[in-house]
Design a protein around this nucleic acid. Structure first.
Lengths: 206, 206
DNA sequence: TTTTGGTTTAACCAAATGGTTAAATCTTTT
DNA sequence: AAAAGATTTAACCATTTGGTTAAACCAAAA
C-alpha cells in the first residue's frame, strides 16, 4: 500500500466495516475480520478509529441519514398529483433498497438491541413531520373523492411494507421463487416497481 | 424453587432464552443474562443444555416450524373462494405475528449471518410447494376473470410484506404513529387485518 | 537528506465470556 | 431413612477479543 492514503484508507475501512456490520451486526462483527477484509491490520484500524464502538457509531450516523430522508422532496412537492407522488415514492424507495439492501434490517436490528437508538435515528430525520403531511394529503384526497376512504397511516405503511420487506426477506424470497443470483433478484425488483405502483393505485383509486 | 421441575425448569429456560435470543441474537445473547432472567444460575443452564449453541439450535428448531407452515391448510383447502383464502391468510398471518413478533426478524438475522441455515429453515417447511400451488391458483383466477392480471409471486409477496413488515419495523412505526404502548400497537394491528384484506381485494378484484 | 506520517509486525494486556467442576444443599421418591 | 435427582455456590480454566504499545519500515513531501 502506498502513502498519503489517509482519506483513501479511511474510506476503504469504512466501506469494509459497513459491509461487515451490516452482515454481522455490532456484536457479531470482529475487528480482525474487518481489518483482514480491508487488507490492512488491526493496529491501523485502531489508528484511524479509536474503538469498535466509535467506528460503528460513525457508520450508523452516516447510514441513518440515508434512511427515509429522501421522501420529503416528493411528498412536499406541489406540482404533481397524489398518484404521481405514490409512484415516485415507490420507485425511489425501491431504488434505495437496491443500493443499500441491508440498511433497514441493520437499523432495526440495532434498535431492537438498544431501543435508545430509536430517537437518534428517527428524531433527526424529520420524517415524522413529513409523515404527518402525507396523512393530511391522504385525507384531502379522500374528501376530494379521488381515492376511497383510507387512512394515510395505513396507506404509507402498506407502501413501506411492499418496498422494504422484499429486501429484508431477500434470501427467503429468492429461495421461494427459485432465483439463484443477486443480479436476477435485482432485476425482479426493478420490474416490481411498476407492479407495486399498479397494485397500490388500483387499491385506492375510485 | 421446588424439585421435580425437570420439564418445568427446562421450559422456563427455553422461554427465557427465546426472548433473549430474539432480542439480542446469537452473538449478543449472554448465558449469564439468560440464567439471571430465568431466575436460575449458569451452572444449571449448562446442566440442562450443554452449550449455548445447543440451546440456540433447539430454539431455532422449534421456532422455524412455526414459520409459515400454517398457510398450507388455507391454501390447499377446496371449499372456500380465492378471496376468502386471502382473507384467512392475512388474518392468520397477522395473528401469528402478534404472538411471535420477533420471529421473522430473528430468523432473517441468523440467515444473513449464516446463509447455510436457509435450507434448514425453508427446506423442511414445505412451504415452497404450497407457494407454487398458490401461484397456480392465482393464474387460474386470472383466467377465470375473477381477478386482474397479476402474478401469484407478486401477490403473495405483497401479502407477506403487509402482514410481516409492520412487526419488524414495529418500533419505527410506533414512533411514527405516536403509539406509546405495545398493547395499543397490537390493537392497531388487529384492526389492520381487515384494512389489509380490503386493500388487497380491491387491488386485484375485477 | 531529513522529516513526517501512514503502515506493519509482533508481542502483550485486561476484560468478557462460555464452559467445567466439586462439594454442599434441598426436594422428592422409594 | 436412604437414594436420586434438582439446584446452588463458588472457584476456576481457556479462549476470544478489543485494545495498546514500541519498534521498525517505507513512501512522499519539505
Amino acid at each position: 500500500m502506498s502513502n498519503s492514503n489517509e482519506s483513501n484508507t479511511q474510506e476503504i475501512i469504512k466501506k469494509t466495516a459497513r459491509e461487515v456490520f451490516f452482515q454481522k451486526g455490532l456484536d457479531g462483527a470482529r475487528m480482525q475480520d474487518i481489518a483482514d477484509k480491508a487488507g490492512i491490520n488491526k493496529a491501523l484500524l485502531h489508528y484511524y478509529f479509536r474503538s469498535k464502538e466509535k467506528l460503528f457509531e460513525i457508520i450508523l450516523d452516516e447510514e441513518k441519514q440515508n434512511f427515509m430522508r429522501y421522501l420529503e422532496d416528493i411528498i412536499t412537492s406541489q406540482d404533481i398529483t397524489f398518484f404521481e407522488k405514490i409512484e415516485k415514492i415507490v420507485e425511489k424507495q425501491i431504488d434505495n433498497m437496491i443500493n443499500a439492501p441491508h440498511l433497514p434490517h441493520f437499523i432495526m436490528n440495532e434498535i431492537i438491541k438498544r431501543p435508545e437508538l430509536l430517537n437518534q435515528v428517527i428524531g433527526n430525520s424529520g420524517f415524522k413531520r413529513v409523515f404527518e403531511v402525507f396523512v393530511k394529503q391522504t385525507s384531502a384526497e379522500v374528501k376530494k373523492g379521488t381515492i376511497r376512504n383510507i387512512k394515510g397511516e395505513q396507506l404509507m405503511m402498506n407502501i413501506m411494507c411492499m418496498d422494504t420487506y422484499p429486501f429484508i426477506a431477500k434470501p427467503y424470497f429468492m429461495n421461494l421463487m427459485g432465483i439463484e443470483s443477486e443480479a436476477e433478484y435485482i432485476k425482479v425488483m426493478q420490474k416490481r416497481k411498476k407492479e407495486v405502483v399498479e397494485f397500490i393505485i388500483t387499491a385506492i383509486k375510485l
